[in-house]
């Protein structure tokens, strides 16, 4: 079922996508930091807060 370059078959139960987990945790961290920065510094720190 897999391509010509397969050197080993890995089934669902023996596959732990820990590389993916690591990448996605990095993504999560970036998103969280950027959100806090954008909301609290860029937006709330900006001029002319709309009050009503």
């Amino acid at each position: 079922m897999s391509g010509e370059n397969t050197v080993r078959e890995i089934g669902h139960d023996e596959f732990d996508p820990y590389g993916t987990l690591a990448l996605i945790l990095i993504y999560f961290a970036i998103l969280s930091v950027m959100w806090v920065f954008m909301y609290f510094v860029e937006f709330l720190g900006n001029d002319l807060t709309v009050l009503a």
Binding site: N46, L48, T49, V50, L51
Partner: peptide
């Protein structure tokens, strides 16, 4: 209002109300 958070749409038939300090 350039470079600020005062930013809204103006639609014919409606009045946009926006208060700033």
């Amino acid at each position: 209002v350039v470079g600020t958070n005062a930013n809204a749409m103006v639609i014919p038939g409606e009045v946009t109300e926006l208060t700033v300090e």
